[in-house]
Simulated assay, not measured.
Amino acid sequence: MTTSLLSRRTFTRLLAATAVAGLGCFGLAQAQTYPTKPVTLVVPYPAGGANDMLGRLIGQKLSEGLGQQFIIDNKPGAGTLIGATVVAKAPADGYTLLVGGFASNAVSPILFKAEYDPLTAFEPIGLFGTAPMVVITFPNSKYKTLKDVVEAAKAKPGEVMYGSSGNGSPLHLAGEMFTAQAKINLTHVPYKGGSAHILDLIGGRLDVIFDTSTNSTPLIKGGKVRPIAVSSKTRMADFPDVPTFAESGYPDFTVNGWYALYAPAKTPKAIVDRLSVELQKVLKQPEVIEKLRGVGVAPASGVASELAKYGPDEFAKYTKLIKDANIKAD
């Protein structure tokens, strides 16, 4: 091999190494100056709900920490797919983020025809909260425990009715998971969103609802419904007398609403890391912890690697459940 050839190869390798180092420095420089303009947080739900409130809370605190405005952009529709698709197709520069979770990143892409793959379309920034499911009934219901529900369902299969906000909703999936684990037959009564299912439960026209803690907590505190079990690992601080599913004999029941922050795929790692670090700081603020817990949400860590594992695990779990139970969307 000639000296000139060796020199050319050495020069090429040095050039490549320099280019890689340059990209790394560029990404670091981006992170150090980011953000230099307002950041859009896409919430794939209408204004006024729990997801919107949580997105605004996190956005406000990120704005305070990073010194730029975080603008909430509500883009509801198609089971959250409209908003999530906007973010999946947005420039990967850290200026368009998704307040995602259970529907957008685990369930809706299975039930509907999504234009994105939830496992590859986003960079996980961090999980910021989880909301356990709560089995609720009306105040004077004969069902005091999960055991009561199961025994009634076994005595008269199909007679016990549980309501939900629609086919494929978290409430429906929770009910299907429980019926499979308890080996019982409950009749699912789907509603077209809104609060009609809650009104029918309060009126005694439904037996139970597997509801999210974000929705059920104010109803329980107001005395409109009565909780009989929660899906959290330990009892909820607000309802210390309500047993967990595990305590009630169903340790494998793990259905939770969850809330997370995502960026489009290929967003520079340095920017994702900076957002994740800032999110972790936000989630340690006493005011944020209090507000999250006030609506039945347990604060998470905000660590990107945790979300990188949690999201795919949830997607795999619901892919199996939806297939096994032959669940179809409305």
Rank of each mutant, 00 (worst) to 15 (best):
G222H: 13
I220N: 01
P243D: 09
I228N: 03
G203S: 08
I220W: 11
F245H: 09
G204L: 08
K221A: 07
I209Y: 01
I198T: 06
T217D: 07
V208T: 03
H197K: 05
P227L: 07
A246F: 11
N215Y: 09
P218Y: 08
T217W: 04
A246W: 07
R205G: 02
G223Y: 15
L206N: 00
T214V: 11
E247G: 06
P240G: 15
P218T: 15
P240F: 05
E247Y: 15
T234E: 14
S216A: 14
D241T: 11
L199M: 11
D238F: 15
T217Q: 09
I202W: 13
F210A: 01
P218S: 13
T217M: 13
P240T: 12
K233Y: 15
I209D: 03
P243N: 02
G223K: 06
I198M: 14
R235P: 12
R235Q: 13
S216F: 12
S248D: 12
V242C: 11
L206I: 03
F239L: 07
S216P: 02
L219D: 09
H197A: 10
L206D: 04
A229C: 08
S248M: 10
I220M: 11
D241W: 10
E247Q: 15
L199T: 10
R205P: 08
D207I: 06
K221W: 04
K224E: 09
G203M: 12
K221H: 13
